[in-house]
Amino acid sequence: MEALLIEGDTILAAFWMTIRLTAVSALGSLVLGTLLTAMRVAPLAALRAAAGTYVSVARNTPLTLVLLFTGLGVGANLGVELSDDIATNNFWLACIGLTAYTSAFVCEALRSGLNTVPVGQAEAARSLGLGFVKTLRLITLPQAFRAVVAPLGSILIALTKNTTIALVVGVSEASVRMREMIETYGDQVIQIFLGFAAGFVLLCLPMGLLFGWLSRRMAVAR
């Protein structure tokens, strides 16, 4: 146990990085996922096709590949620099990769949510003179969001755990810290594993509870 106690501060710092990766990528995925959803139902066929292709590619590519692509492809090869500080640069590259990947899942969840909104809601909105964007923004998407709160919660939990793959871009989040500790404290591997696993459960369990509660609270009565 003492390894976990001695390294308490560095473990917390590593989990703090996990939380930051999760928070930024979650926000990014929500925005990009919503945009993709709007594109997938847009009146313009080109927009629908573009979003559909994007979702198919991002959803069916392993996250490790996506992150390697952002790290090595976008970062190293194309030389995209988001910050002078290498750690900060890697952080943002990881967030881009995680967002690119997760937004495809958010899009699919939201699209299934849109399908639960009766067609009459959009017809009523259009008959008042609301255009495509306002109908989506004011009427159909808000109801779609409320319908998919629980699946969005699952996506957030998956994202939290997926941040461990940011190690391939060189971000020192919880799983990197765990590996380092296993090398230093070779006699306490099991305890270290259990400690970090508990950390993730502690992080994810409240999310599940919160989203379960939210989905009941926000459900639209029909």
């Binding site: 008959s127 008042l128 009427i139």
Partner: peptide, 25 residues
């Protein structure tokens, strides 16, 4: 046919549906 002009026209033509279609949220 579509676009802003159609939206403007719809704003001038009220519609009441069989299934009410009130905004549920």
């Amino acid at each position: 046919a579509e676009g802003k002009a159609l939206a403007r026209l719809r704003a001038e033509v009220g519609m009441v549906f069989q299934s009410f279609n009130l905004f549920a949220h």
